[in-house]
Structures are given as structure tokens and as C-alpha cells.
Computed example of a mutant assay.
Amino acid sequence: MVAGSNKGRGKPRRPMSVQERAQAERDIRGAIADLQESAYANFRSAVANVAIFFGFVGVFGIVAGAVDGLRLIPMVVLVLAGPVGVAYYPFRQQWKIAVRLLMTSSALVVIGLAGLVLVATVLEK
């Protein structure tokens, strides 16, 4: 097939009426809105899962005895991020509460990881 030729394209499209065009635009906008909503829901679940993961890492570190001294405080903060991440799931239909829980769990993870880095690099020298 040569670029720009009409061979192999089949029938030319028929012109759409104003109503058909409006309906097609509504259908496309609805599909895009559904895609965006599912993408945001997946992102929120991923953020909650990260907090839960670091909560498990904190619990495992404390139970295994790998954490002592100054590392205990940031690990406890990571442990607290886990239940806050779990609390997102029952409240995910209530948007304001869910976003606040996600922000809190994310802040706890960042504070815990920053605390671990601070303890490992600055305070243990």
C-alpha cells in the first residue's frame, strides 16, 4: 500500500449528524473519566500498600532484634504507618477521610525512612 492512497481503506466514512457527534463525544469523555478514576484508585491503593509494606518491615525488624538504640524510634514510626495504610481500605469510599489517611501514612513513611537515614549516616558515626 502506498502512503496516502485510498486502496485498502474500505468504504469512506459517512458524515455524522450533530446528535451522533455529540453522543460520540459523550461516550469518549465517559470512557476517559472512567479510565482516570480507575487509575487514581489504583494509585491510592498502591500508596496504602507501600505504607503497609513498610509497617511489616518495621515489625519484622523489631521482632528479629535488628533494631536497637536510636533506630528503634524511626522503626516505630514505620510500624505506625502500616495500620494507617490498612485503615485506608474501609474508608476508601469516603474521599476526604481516605485522602487524609493516605497523606498521614505517606508522611509517616517519609519521616520513618528519613529518620533511619539520619540515624545511619549522622548519629552513628
Rank of each mutant, 00 (worst) to 15 (best):
Y88N: 00
L78P: 03
S105I: 01
M75D: 04
A107D: 06
V57G: 08
I111T: 09
I111L: 10
I73Y: 02
R100T: 11
Y88I: 02
F54P: 07
V67H: 07
A87L: 11
F53W: 06
N49E: 08
S38N: 08
W95Q: 09
V86I: 07
A39V: 13
R44I: 00
N49H: 14
R29S: 14
A87N: 12
A24G: 09
V77M: 00
A31T: 13
F54K: 10
Q94L: 12
V99S: 03
D27V: 10
M103I: 12
A120D: 11
P74L: 02
Q23G: 12
A39W: 04
A24Q: 15
E25G: 02
Q94D: 09
L101F: 08
N42D: 02
Q93I: 01
V59N: 05
L70S: 01
V110C: 07
K96W: 04
A33R: 14
G65S: 08
V99L: 07
F54C: 01
A46R: 14
L102M: 04
V122G: 00
Q93T: 06
D27E: 15
F54T: 11
V84E: 02
R29K: 15
K96P: 00
A48I: 07
K125E: 00
F54V: 11
M103D: 07
L80V: 02
R71M: 05
S45I: 14
R29L: 10
V63A: 12
R21W: 01
V117A: 09
A41T: 15
Q94W: 13
Y88V: 03
Y88T: 05
V122W: 09
V122K: 01
A81H: 05
A51I: 11
G65K: 14
V86F: 08
P90N: 07
G58P: 14
F60W: 08
A48Y: 06
V77D: 00
A107Y: 08
D68N: 09
F54S: 06
L116Y: 04
L108E: 04
V110Y: 01
L113C: 00
V18M: 06
V18N: 12
V18G: 11
A120R: 15
L118G: 09
P15H: 03
A22N: 11
E37N: 14
M75N: 12
G65F: 09
M16F: 03
V117N: 01
L108V: 11
S105D: 06
D34A: 15
L118A: 12
T104F: 06
A31N: 14
V117G: 10
G58E: 06
L80T: 02
V50P: 04
G85R: 13
M103K: 10
F60G: 14
V18P: 10
I62F: 06
M103P: 00
A33I: 08
L78Y: 01
A46P: 14
R26N: 12
D34N: 15
I52M: 13
Q19W: 12
A24R: 15
G30W: 04
S45L: 11
E25R: 15
F60H: 11
E25D: 13
I28F: 14
A46H: 13
V99Q: 07
A41I: 12
V86Y: 05
G112L: 05
L72E: 01
G69L: 07
G65I: 09
E37P: 05
S45G: 09
N42K: 09
V57R: 12
L108R: 11
T121V: 10
L80G: 02
A107H: 10
F43G: 00
S105G: 05
R44F: 03
F53C: 05
V63M: 08
